[in-house]
Simulated assay, not measured.
Amino acid sequence: METAVQFFSRDPAVIGIFLGGSLAAGSADAFSDIDLRVVVQPDRHASYVDRRREIPKAWPGFLFNEWVPGAQHCVSHFRPFGKIDIFYYSAATLTPSPWYRLPIRIFLDPQGVVADLVEQAKGLPFTVDPDDVDFSISKGLAAAHETYRRAMRGELFFAQTLLDEMRQHIMQADDWLNDRTPESAAVAKFEHRASREVNAVLLASYRQCGADEILAALRLLVPFYRQQVMALHEKFRLPRPVANDLEALDIISFETASDRN
């Protein structure tokens, strides 16, 4: 972190450097990553985005990058297990957001740009976009169906990864249904903030890599996810037909029960 801050501070085009995530929140441990944000003058922003993969390579201990094409950030890994996630923001496009209500540590802010964002963010609520819920349900249902299909085809490793994807949507639904915001996630890992029932069903769903074991895990998760889907429909008044979603899960329950018999 010190290396990165010193590097960016030398460039007058960088007018803001601040830290987010668990380090800023005071909940970090030895394996936490570094969430660094760099605010750049508009005329130099594209240059930094273009060089986002090259800049960390010159820093001591560099191992490898991971990135998304077209994105404005890069995640860099350092030996032995260091990890820094750097987002590059253009000063021209910065707008107030509830995300700036989360704990922030400012390293550089000569023009008060970051401090102004933090001030304007006060009182802005985190809201859940129904489209995000809609998308999550579709992905959760797809993961459940694909788990069944792949297990029946004997593609067991693939089926296990799909079960994990379904678990992710169960975890997300639990946060939404209990009105947990990113502020909750910043200070408490899911295992510590989750509903007791969710923790129990997730723990019980981990099985050996065999078709019968995977189908048994699916039988355990599907009825629980069905309850969550019904609750999500009721809470967010989703336009998608609830009957279709429930039928998609009931089909799996019926088929896995038939396979067991």
Rank of each mutant, 00 (worst) to 15 (best):
K57I: 02
Q6G: 13
I251M: 09
H45N: 07
D164Q: 15
F78V: 14
K189C: 00
F8P: 00
V242G: 02
A144Q: 10
R10E: 03
Y225L: 10
A121Q: 05
E155I: 12
P96S: 11
R237G: 06
M152N: 12
F135K: 05
D134N: 01
G70V: 09
A13H: 12
D85E: 10
V113L: 10
M171Y: 10
R51K: 09
Y225D: 04
F87R: 02
A216T: 06
D164G: 13
R79L: 04
V49G: 11
D259L: 15
M166D: 08
G140D: 08
V38S: 09
C209A: 12
V128Q: 10
L63G: 00
S136R: 12
G123P: 07
S97V: 07
H192Y: 09
A121F: 09
V128K: 11
V40Y: 15
G140I: 07
W99P: 01
I106E: 06
P96A: 03
D33F: 04
A159N: 05
M230P: 02
P12Y: 11
V75W: 08
E191M: 06
I34G: 05
S9M: 08
A151P: 01
K57P: 00
A217V: 03
Q111M: 09
L124K: 11
D179H: 08
D116R: 13
Q120C: 08
E165D: 08
F7E: 03
L102G: 12
T3Y: 14
D250A: 15
P12D: 06
D174S: 12
P69R: 06
S195N: 01
S136Y: 02
A4Q: 11
H73G: 03
L220N: 11
V198Q: 03
M166N: 11
S90R: 11
R150Y: 15
T127S: 12
F126K: 07
C74T: 10
S184I: 10
Q6V: 10
R207W: 05
R226L: 13
G21E: 13
A30P: 00
G154T: 12
T181C: 13
L19R: 03
W99I: 15
I15S: 13
D175P: 00
F224D: 02
M171H: 12
A4E: 11
P239D: 02
R260Y: 05
G123F: 02
L218H: 02
Q111C: 07
D250E: 09
L141M: 13
D35C: 02
D116G: 08
V118K: 03
E119W: 11
A200V: 05
T93W: 13
D129H: 14
S27C: 03
P80F: 04
D132I: 14
I55M: 06
P96T: 01
S138M: 14
S184K: 04
A144T: 12
T95Q: 15
A211Y: 08
V133P: 06
L117I: 08
L63F: 00
R52A: 14
V75P: 05
I104V: 15
K235G: 01
R53Q: 10
D164K: 15
D179V: 01
